[in-house]
Amino acid sequence: MVIIITGASHVGKTILAQRMLEKYKYPYFSIDHLKMGLIRSGITDLTPEDDDELTDYLWPIVREIIKTAIENEQNLIVEGCYIPFDWRNNFEEQYLRWIRFICIAMSDEYIDSHLEEIKSHASDIETRLDDSYCTAEQMKQDNHQVIDGYRSNGEQITLITENYDDSIREVFD
Score class of each variant (00 low, 15 high):
Lys35Phe: 10
Cys81Phe: 07
Glu93Gln: 14
Tyr82Phe: 13
Ala122Gly: 08
Asp45Ala: 13
Arg63Cys: 14
Asp130Val: 13
Gly154Glu: 02
Ser107Asn: 02
Pro60Lys: 05
Lys140Pro: 00
His33Cys: 02
Glu109Gly: 03
Pro84Trp: 03
Asn153Met: 09
Asn153Glu: 15
His114Ser: 04
Pro84Arg: 08
Ile61Ser: 03
Leu76Arg: 03
Arg40Asn: 13
Ile147Met: 10
Ile39Leu: 07
Trp59Arg: 08
Thr55Lys: 09
Glu155Ala: 09
Glu116Arg: 11
Ala105Ile: 02
Lys119Ser: 01
Thr135Asn: 09
Ala136His: 02
Arg128Ala: 00
Arg151Cys: 07
Phe101His: 07
Arg151His: 08
Ala136Thr: 06
Tyr57Val: 06
Val78Cys: 04
Met36Asn: 13
Trp59Tyr: 13
Ser107Trp: 07
Arg40His: 14
Cys134Pro: 02
Gln156Gly: 02
Ser107Val: 07
Leu38Thr: 04
Ala122Phe: 06
Ile66Pro: 01
Trp87Ile: 12
Asp130Leu: 11
Asp56Thr: 13
Gln141Asn: 11
Asn89Tyr: 13
Ile102Asp: 06
Ser132Asp: 11
Asn72Phe: 13
Thr135Trp: 11
Asn90Phe: 15
Tyr95Met: 09
Gly37Asp: 06
Glu137Ala: 14
Phe91Asp: 05
Ala105His: 02
Asp142Thr: 02
Gln141Phe: 15
Ile147Trp: 01
Leu58Ala: 11
His114Gly: 07
His114Asn: 12
Glu126Trp: 00
Thr44Gly: 10
Val62Cys: 04
Ile70Asn: 06
Tyr150Val: 05
Ile147Cys: 04
Thr55Tyr: 02
His114Phe: 08
Arg88Cys: 03
Gln141Thr: 08
Asn89His: 03
Met36Leu: 13
Phe91Pro: 08
Ile118Ala: 08
Asp142Glu: 06
Gln156Tyr: 15
Arg97Thr: 15
Asp142Pro: 01
Leu58Ser: 08
Ile118Lys: 00
Gly149Lys: 05
Ile66Arg: 01
Asp32Arg: 01
Ile147Arg: 07
Tyr57Ile: 05
Leu54Ser: 05
Leu38Pro: 10
Met139Ala: 04
Ser132Glu: 01
Gln94Phe: 05
Leu46Tyr: 13
Thr127Cys: 00
Asp52Glu: 14
Phe85Cys: 01
Glu117Gln: 12
Glu117Ser: 02
Asp50Thr: 12
Asn153Trp: 07
